[in-house]
């Protein structure tokens, strides 16, 4: 993915999560959707902006740690609902 495509993806995902929250999407499914969009954005920054798409093994490692972290955050969001 090029840096410009990554930027467009990040803009679209950011607007998507803001719209989701702004127009009253509430409840656990909205929270999980918002966190999933944040997860994808973080992956795009790691892979494209920080260049981990050119270092697949490091990309997988960072992706795995991020996945564990985001699942933990999602678990806490579910517990708070």
């Amino acid at each position: 993915m090029s840096v410009t495509n990554a930027w467009l993806t990040l803009i679209a995902l950011s607007i998507g999560s803001t719209i989701l929250a702004h127009f009253g999407a509430a409840g656990i499914f909205a929270s999980l959707a918002i966190l999933t969009l944040a997860w994808i954005k973080a992956q795009v920054i790691l892979r494209v902006y920080l260049g981990l798409q050119n270092a697949p093994s490091w990309g997988r490692g960072f992706g795995m740690v991020l996945a564990i972290y985001m699942i933990g955050i999602m678990g806490l969001a579910v517990a708070a609902s």
């Binding site: 999560s17 989701l20 929250a21 966190l35 944040a38 920054i45 902006y49």
Partner: peptide, 22 residues
């Protein structure tokens, strides 16, 4: 320098939804 800037970016894309949207 750009890597530091992307780290700042990365932190914000996680902080923003957790703090402002959930």
């Amino acid at each position: 320098g750009a890597a530091f800037w992307h780290m700042v970016d990365l932190v914000w894309v996680l902080l923003f939804p957790i703090m402002y949207l959930l």
